[in-house]
Amino acid sequence: MPTTVSMTVNGKKVSGSIEPRTLLVQFIRETLGLTGTHVGCDTSQCGSCVVHVDGKSVKSCTILAAQAEGSDVLTIEGVAKDGKLHPMQEAFRENHGLQCGFCTPGMVMSALDLVKNNKNPSEQQIRDWLEGNICRCTGYHNIVKAIAAGAKAMA
């Protein structure tokens, strides 16, 4: 039986009729058509699907859309404001912190949550935090650099 879920996504109130088993990532990608949030695995490890739910980073493949009922969700599409990249996004661009771009939205969302709680993370803290985000292109070197620079720019 379909059920209706409502939440705020990127500042807009949205709702949709979905099957109860629908994952948040499916709701975001398929119902809302926000395809910046990616699916790179089926074991909740790659982190390509990280979004913020009520201000905290969450792998959107690990929760049901219904669990986000009434929540405030931020996806990568909501990060840049007025056509201007967020300082963290700008830091990824400036430091060549992305190549194919597939893991990138999850990396940025994860980085934003890190910096929210740790305004000046060390290299080791950044590397530890990224345990749940896999990148196959960059060797992480420039991602780590980008997050450090992004944190600085946000301070």
Binding site: L34, T35, G36, T75, Q89, F92, R93, H96, L98, C100
Partner: peptide
């Protein structure tokens, strides 16, 4: 700096899926 980055960083890339 890469011109493709803006679309990837804002979730506007278009992958097959």
């Amino acid at each position: 700096k890469r011109r493709e980055d803006a679309r990837f960083l804002t979730g506007n890339g278009t992958y097959t899926d």
